[in-house]
Nucleic acid binder design. Structure first.
Lengths: 236, 236
DNA sequence: ATGCCTCACTCGTCTGACAAGTTTGATCCC
DNA sequence: GGGATCAAACTTGTCAGACGAGTGAGGCAT
């Protein structure tokens, strides 16, 4: 272990260190969600100064490979799926991005739900209802659940009759429900029954308000649902 | 010159500096091939230590925006000029599109204003204030007014600290303020003094709520402003 | 058992210093 | 004058030490 850095490549020690760490991550030696060695460890292992280590980690950060938290350390993010998943998949990576996305969805979707309640047609309501049933029926795999969740939110947006809302949600795709790999496992798979019933209840509240043509209730219900989702993630 | 860095964004000084420099490059203030200010200059201009400056430049390097040579300096590379949001610049043509757009903006911008009130930094508030002044000063042509109006709304979104809001507004551009040609003359140019003062007042209300850190008031003020704009168009 | 609090650990920033590469300009020689 | 030479100034690269700020674990009192 711990081969010292080659000091004669002409591109700088920080560059060398970045390459080493990148290789480790891409090779899976440090898996997504795991912690990068501390700065002190890297200083010892590679025999360089803290300046170099910090610059290297800083570049990994800029490259979207790790996310750093003061007082805790740097954590490896999901490896950019080389299969060209979607361009947008690279947009939500860090923990902060997820929280920001939920704040964004609060603004967009609560108003969309309100408009949906006020302007929906019977047909649109039926579509929302179908999505809700798909979501609550215990039929599918976890992957299917994300898909169904997204479809419910999309149908609500469609019921608003405003193409800007529905187009925006459609452009996000199911990705908007997805969560970062870092501590996702910890918070989402631990979804005990309590979690699921609570989320289901929140969805039903949104649906009922739309069915009742109660705009204010629909806005509140959707805001509550998303704010709760955000809270469920923020302090695991 | 040289506005000092905002030390309260919670993402670190280096991050702030990166954003500043990135903005300069993207805005074309430093053209491809030109030299970035030296580290010493940046230290002086932004009042930070060399550590921060070096990390920032290092990140620009990782992002592929600059290339650095020992003993010479950092030079700006070609600009990719890509926007995060791929929301197509959907044309707003029909009268209904305009109303839908305003309904959409109600959802997006009222929440953005609320978040801005709750999370803004002093620097962001100053930016909003400047935009407001530009808007109220009777200096410019009508075209300039649209531009200034847009800038105000964008600065509010930026003050939310959530890139999804600001990216979305930025992707729309001043176009989102524009109105259909059909009855534009009728509704906007006939804008007697009453109209203008009323709109100005609405903007000021938004600003004041953000300054007071009153999230609920900011949401209400922005919603009112956009709802009024909608009403001013709906039944002229 | 619970809640609070201290303390060690980690990252964020600052300061000062020296090494290594580049540019500039004065100097010297022709 | 023109060209080669070289020292000094400037720029980036690296090192070392220090302190502040946020986090988390373990101990302590209740």
């Amino acid at each position: 272990m711990s081969v010292p850095l080659d000091r004669n490549t002409g591109r700088g020690l920080a560059y060398e260190l970045v390459e080493r760490l990148k290789a480790r991550i891409l090779a899976g030696e440090i898996r997504p969600g795991e912690k990068l060695p501390t700065e002190s460890s890297l200083i010892e292992e590679f025999g360089v100064s803290r300046t170099v280590v910090r610059e290297a980690v800083s570049q990994l950060q800029a490259a979207g490979l790790v996310e750093t938290f003061q007082g805790r350390g740097s954590f490896v993010l999901a490896v950019p799926a080389s299969t060209a998943f979607t361009v947008e998949a690279t947009q939500i990576r860090t923990h902060r991005d997820v929280l920001d996305m939920l704040d964004f969805r609060i603004g967009v979707e609560s108003e969309a739900a309100g408009l949906a309640a006020e302007r929906r047609t019977e047909l649109q309501l039926k579509a929302v209802e179908r999505a809700l049933v798909d979501l609550t029926s215990p039929g599918g795999q976890p992957g299917n659940a994300v898909e169904a969740d997204f479809r419910f939110h999309l149908k609500v947006a469609l019921a608003s009759g405003n193409r800007f809302y529905s187009d925006l949600l459609a452009s996000f795709g199911p990705m908007m429900i997805m969560l970062p790999r870092t501590r996702l496992e910890h918070t989402y798979t631990v979804s005990d029954a309590t979690h699921l019933t609570r989320v289901t209840l929140e969805h039903e509240n949104v649906y009922r308000a739309i069915a009742d043509r109660d705009g204010a209730a629909a806005r509140a219900a959707m805001r509550l649902h998303l704010a709760n989702s955000r809270a469920r993630l923020q302090a695991p």
